[in-house]
């Protein structure tokens, strides 16, 4: 059964949502998911860029108000 953890990076600039996601990926198992909450619109493109380059999987990106919910799955 895969798990989903949430990283609440709303309103944070440094190290920022993507760096938190990269750190978080090291702490989960293959098949598990991470959901990053970000108020930085740049995350919508930053996160897929890294996920695609490193070989993990994008699950979904949704927007609620000014918060983006970006869900990724650890693939390796």
């Amino acid at each position: 059964m895969s798990e989903r953890k949430i990283i609440d990076a709303r309103g944070t600039y440094c190290p920022g949502p993507l760096m938190e996601l990269i750190a978080g990926m090291k702490q989960i198992e293959v098949g598990d998911e991470l959901e990053v909450l970000s108020t930085d619109e740049g995350s919508v493109s930053d996160v897929p860029e890294w996920i695609n380059k490193v070989g993990h999987e994008m699950v979904e990106t949704t927007q609620e108000g000014d918060v983006w919910h970006i869900v990724v799955r650890k693939a390796k």
Binding site: C14, G16, L18, G42, D46, W50
Partner: peptide, 10 residues
């Protein structure tokens, strides 16, 4: 650097 620019702060 880990992300797509050379520092966390744009």
């Amino acid at each position: 650097y880990p992300i797509g620019r050379i520092h966390a702060l744009a």
